[in-house]
Simulated assay, not measured.
Amino acid sequence: MEGLSKSDANLIVYVHPSQSKNVDKAILRELSSLLFKYSQAFDGVVLAYSVDPQDKCARILSGVHPYFGVRLRANLLIFSPKPNMLLEGKVVKITRESIHCIVLGFSSAIITDENIRNELKYKAKHGEGVYVSRYHKRHVIKVGAVIRFEVKSLDEEILHISGSLIPANAGSVHWLCSPVMKLG
Rank of each mutant, 00 (worst) to 15 (best):
142 K>E: 14
137 K>V: 05
126 H>Q: 10
122 Y>L: 00
136 H>Q: 10
27 I>V: 15
175 W>V: 11
78 I>L: 00
34 L>K: 02
49 Y>K: 00
164 S>A: 08
15 V>I: 15
12 I>Q: 14
162 S>Q: 08
106 F>R: 01
52 D>T: 12
175 W>S: 10
83 P>K: 06
120 L>D: 03
181 M>S: 14
59 R>S: 13
125 K>Y: 12
75 N>Y: 00
159 L>V: 09
75 N>L: 02
174 H>C: 14
10 N>P: 01
151 V>K: 04
3 G>Q: 09
159 L>A: 07
96 R>L: 12
19 Q>I: 02
59 R>P: 00
122 Y>R: 00
2 E>C: 12
18 S>D: 15
147 I>P: 05
125 K>M: 11
103 V>Q: 06
73 R>E: 07
108 S>Y: 08
93 K>A: 12
54 Q>N: 11
154 L>Q: 02
148 R>P: 08
94 I>K: 06
161 I>W: 03
164 S>M: 05
100 H>K: 12
85 M>Y: 11
149 F>L: 06
8 D>K: 03
129 G>E: 01
118 N>W: 04
4 L>Y: 10
114 E>K: 09
78 I>G: 01
43 D>N: 13
129 G>M: 00
131 Y>A: 02
182 K>P: 10
165 L>A: 11
84 N>T: 15
104 L>S: 05
126 H>V: 05
99 I>Q: 06
31 L>D: 06
1 M>W: 07
76 L>H: 00
20 S>T: 10
97 E>L: 09
66 P>E: 12
159 L>Y: 04
139 H>S: 03
33 S>G: 11
30 E>G: 03
113 D>V: 09
132 V>S: 01
58 A>M: 09
113 D>N: 08
77 L>A: 01
61 L>W: 04
10 N>D: 08
112 T>I: 01
144 G>V: 08
10 N>Y: 06
106 F>P: 03
37 K>D: 12
16 H>A: 08
131 Y>R: 01
38 Y>L: 05
3 G>D: 08
136 H>P: 01
115 N>A: 02
138 R>D: 15
22 N>T: 12
49 Y>A: 02
96 R>F: 09
124 A>W: 04
102 I>S: 10
144 G>C: 10
55 D>P: 02
157 E>T: 14
18 S>I: 10
53 P>A: 07
150 E>A: 13
53 P>F: 07
46 V>R: 01
6 K>F: 07
15 V>T: 08
170 A>C: 15
97 E>Q: 13
40 Q>V: 11
135 Y>P: 00
56 K>Q: 12
166 I>Y: 03
4 L>H: 14
44 G>P: 06
142 K>M: 08
36 F>A: 07
106 F>S: 05
142 K>V: 03
145 A>W: 02
170 A>N: 11
64 V>P: 02
181 M>R: 15
182 K>V: 11
133 S>T: 03
74 A>K: 00
21 K>E: 15
11 L>S: 01
39 S>Q: 10
177 C>D: 14
99 I>W: 07
30 E>P: 00
153 S>V: 00
98 S>P: 02
41 A>S: 10
34 L>F: 11
119 E>G: 05
36 F>R: 12
147 I>V: 14
38 Y>E: 03
6 K>N: 05
154 L>W: 07
180 V>D: 14
19 Q>D: 15
35 L>M: 08
47 L>S: 00
36 F>Y: 15
64 V>L: 09
148 R>N: 05
172 S>A: 15
147 I>R: 07
137 K>M: 03
39 S>R: 09
95 T>Q: 00
124 A>I: 15
147 I>S: 07
52 D>Q: 11
